[in-house]
Write a protein that binds this DNA or RNA. Structure first.
Lengths: 110, 110
DNA sequence: CTGATCTACAACCATGTGGTTGTACGTTAC
DNA sequence: GTAACGTACAACCACATGGTTGTAGATCAG
């Protein structure tokens, strides 16, 4: 069932977003608890603006959401984004398994 | 069990490699059948050198292997690379599920 | 109101990426 | 041996990325 409602561009953005250790760490954190952008920025040895950019990349990739609360922006993990990415890789493994089965079938043809 | 024997750099390379539609297509193809680099290049509307670079990126990301056969290089899918990437995303989902359970636990505390 | 805090965004820089063309070299076919 | 094929790699280009600093607008605390 290779039915993900994601365009190629969206998948690009998703994997691209995950291809950075800082961003993966942010995702892991905001899946566990809520953070403001500045709360996140405190966790890393880089400028606020840099962290802000990382969050923006994750938001565009549908891996986190931001919600304004007072003067803060609360960042939350978007687990269905993660799930969609995982399902894509599931598809690859399934394709591969089908091929293996096909080969074994041929080999065992008596 | 967040135990993947992958360095952060390796994970970076893996997701980075998957963040391109052409490369994902190559992975899907070589998981099903063997291709030479030029055989792959025929499939896409770009130069041989461009495809060659994509294959090199996938190889560095441990998602495919190349094996010399005569004057050709045979490209094969490396399913355990895909599996490792998927398991990482599994970990994120697990983290998130634990948090949800924890929240429900707190709410149901009578 | 004032000052501190949180965020947004622009400008800039160095480096990386995805593509190109061109050249060179080993291998196969004849 | 020679020509064609498959590959490797360098040089180049336009553009994206990941970081910086600086400026400015909202919001909160006193």
């Amino acid at each position: 069932m290779v039915v993900d409602q994601l365009s190629e561009d969206e998948v690009d953005r998703m994997f691209q977003a995950l291809a950075d250790a800082t961003r993966r760490d942010i995702v892991a954190r905001v899946l566990v608890a809520e953070y403001s952008v500045s709360g996140l920025a405190e966790q890393y040895d880089m400028s606020f603006a840099a962290v802000q950019k990382h969050v923006a990349v994750l938001e565009r990739a549908l891996l986190v959401t931001k919600e304004k609360r007072g003067r803060e922006q609360i960042v939350r993990g978007q687990v269905d984004g993660v799930q969609r990415a995982r399902r894509l890789l599931d598809d690859y493994e399934r394709i591969w398994r089908q091929r293996v089965e096909r080969i074994e079938e041929i080999l065992e043809k008596d």
